[in-house]
Structures are given as C-alpha cells and as structure tokens.
Simulated assay, not measured.
Amino acid sequence: MTRHLDLTLTSPEQTSALAARLGAMLHAGDVLLLSGEIGAGKTHFARALIQSLQDTPEDVPSPTFTLVQVYDTPAGELWHADLYRLSSPDECVELGLADAFDEAICLVEWPDKLEDLTPAAALSLRLADRAGDDTRQLTLTWTDPRWDSLVAALV
C-alpha cells in the first residue's frame, strides 16, 4: 500500500531542519529519491541532510557534473547522486549505484533515470516551488513499512 504525506516548508531554514531530522534517522541501505523541477530545492535538501551527518560540516557541492559524491559520516557511507545528465539506467549500474543502494545511505536526484533499478523500499521526496518565494511543497511517498515511524517522527 502506498502512503504519502504532504508538508509545506515556508523557508530554506525549515527545509534544512527537516532534512537534518530525517538524516538523523537514516542508516546503510536507506535510499531517498529526490525529485522536482530545476530550482525546486533538491540539492538544498540533500546538502542540509549531508552536512547534518558530518562531524564537521564541509562544503557539499552539487554532483551535477561529477554525477556522484561520496561522504564518510558517523552514520556510514553516504552517496549523493545527480542523474540528470544520464541517458540510460545502465550508466547507473556503471556508477556503482546498484551496490550502494544496499551498502550506503543514498540520496538520488532525478530518480526517474533509474527506471527499473529504483529500489522498492525507497522513500520518495518530491519538492515543488510554490508561488516563486521560499515556500516549498514536499510530498513524501513510500510503500515500505520501515518509513511509517520515521515519517511520523518528522511531523
């Protein structure tokens, strides 16, 4: 059964705080699928989550051109992937994402590029810009019961 939750985030700070709360609950094997139009806040959300897991927060560049950035955190290895420039799911396999889904925390921007490789147990987060200001609509969607209590703890 698919479940979902809609949240309105009224500022970048509120988005960062939610990302940090979610980050504190993640462990190896958790996959977050970040979707939304360009400028919707996917990278901002990912950056805030990654920095919240670092002992000493460091610069977190967008992986748009490198495709994947890997971080060592106290919670385990974390992969931040931006699949925007990929043309086939085979390229995701070449990057090692299929293995990372089992062994690391993974944040994937533009997850539609995964096609059949999309992990069934992933948590999907769709960000939408509202009215051109700093307000974002966040829709979380999941089927795996593992996310029930985690999502409940976010609100």
Rank of each mutant, 00 (worst) to 15 (best):
T56K: 08
T10N: 10
A122L: 11
S88V: 00
G132D: 06
W142H: 05
W79A: 12
F45W: 04
E91I: 04
L67W: 04
D82S: 04
L140P: 09
P61L: 13
H27S: 15
T141W: 05
G36F: 01
L83G: 14
T64V: 05
E13F: 11
L53P: 04
L9G: 03
R47G: 13
D133H: 00
L107R: 04
S16P: 08
A100Y: 10
F65M: 14
V68G: 00
H4A: 04
I105K: 02
D148V: 09
G29E: 10
P119Y: 09
S124F: 08
Y84P: 14
E115W: 02
L34V: 03
L78G: 05
L5E: 14
V93F: 08
D129L: 14
Q14H: 03
L78K: 08
S88A: 13
P63T: 12
H27G: 14
L9K: 03
D90G: 05
A122Y: 07
W110F: 14
M25C: 11
G29T: 07
A121W: 13
V70F: 03
P89G: 05
C92H: 10
L32Y: 01
S11H: 07
P89K: 11
L95D: 04
I105M: 08
D6L: 12
V68T: 07
Q137L: 14
T2N: 12
L34M: 00
W110L: 15
R126V: 10
L83P: 11
A81T: 06
A104H: 02
L123P: 11
D72R: 10
W79T: 06
I50C: 06
D134P: 10
L53R: 06
D6W: 01
W110R: 08
M1C: 01
D148G: 10
L95S: 08
V31K: 06
A40S: 15
V108A: 02
T141S: 12
T73I: 02
A120H: 09
S149G: 13
H80L: 11
T118L: 09
H4V: 02
D116M: 10
T8D: 06
S87W: 01
M25S: 12
T143G: 14
L18V: 10
W142L: 09
G76T: 10
T15G: 04
D90Y: 10
A40Y: 00
Y84T: 15
E94F: 07
P61F: 14
A128G: 05
E109F: 01
T43Y: 04
L7N: 09
D112E: 15
V31I: 09
L150Q: 05
T135Y: 05
T8P: 05
L33K: 11
G23S: 02
G36T: 12
V70K: 11
T8V: 13
W147F: 09
E37I: 00
L154M: 05
E103C: 11
D82V: 12
P12K: 01
K42A: 12
V31L: 06
S87M: 09
D148L: 03
R146D: 02
R136S: 06
P12Q: 08
A19G: 07
Y71M: 01
A17T: 13
D59C: 08
L78I: 04
L18I: 11
A122D: 08
